[in-house]
Amino acid sequence: MIGRERMTVVSQRMIAERTYELTLSGQLVAQMNEPGQFVHIKVAEAADPLLRRPLSLCQIDHKQGQCIIIYRQEGKGTALLTQKQPGDRVDVLGPLGHGFPLDAAPAGGRALLVGGGIGVPPLYELAKQLANRGVNVVSVLGFATKAAVFYEAEFAAFGETYIATDDGSYGMAGRVTDVIEQQGLSFDVLYACGPKPMLKALAERFRGRPVYLSLEERMGCGVGACFACVCHVPGSETAYKKVCSDGPVFRAGEVVL
């Protein structure tokens, strides 16, 4: 069930360059289950900035009634979000969309999680839930530079974790696809979230394999009503999927990247 709630800020801290970890509490957490789902956040009560911001669920904690979002300060909206203090309220609509299919990973099998930059957060809840099901989790996380790296130890708690940086300032130098090649990483299922070129490279490299990708698109409503976030379906001029309500996670090949 999608709900709307003024959730309470429990804490907020900077965990990497321009990157913040925001913990929220509220009733809505009870509705959150799927890793890869997102929430739509109104960062200010005022009419400006007007639109909600889509941000992925990074951790869901039903016991504590809390969820965590990790976001990078980009523009006006995320800058305002950094100012939220413990006790402040944040207007949250969610959980939205369809997340990563856990059933695609066989118990005892191997899941390769590939994250790029601010695409890393939703993979954390995924890693947690997969590990709970007895799936072997291998994570490959790419960042621009050392200062941008976050959650290395957190991912390592669930399995082998490789960090790559574009400038080679930390971990391995190069892209996540290079790391997969160099380390000869195999998998039963691959889950990825990150910039489109990275998703495209993975889809092409592993064509025909079970690969699930989380897409980003500019949104209006976030619930499937406004047609802002559509993408093409291969082989059709008019067929479409909505990133907000049919996605954001799609099987590679399901939509045109």
Partner: peptide
């Protein structure tokens, strides 16, 4: 007939408003 509409991005935020080109 069914229409696909324009390419994305289809929305952009403006001060107290939004632009759409669905």
């Amino acid at each position: 007939e069914p229409r696909f509409g324009n390419s994305t991005p289809r929305v952009a935020e403006t001060p107290s408003g939004m632009l759409n080109a669905i």
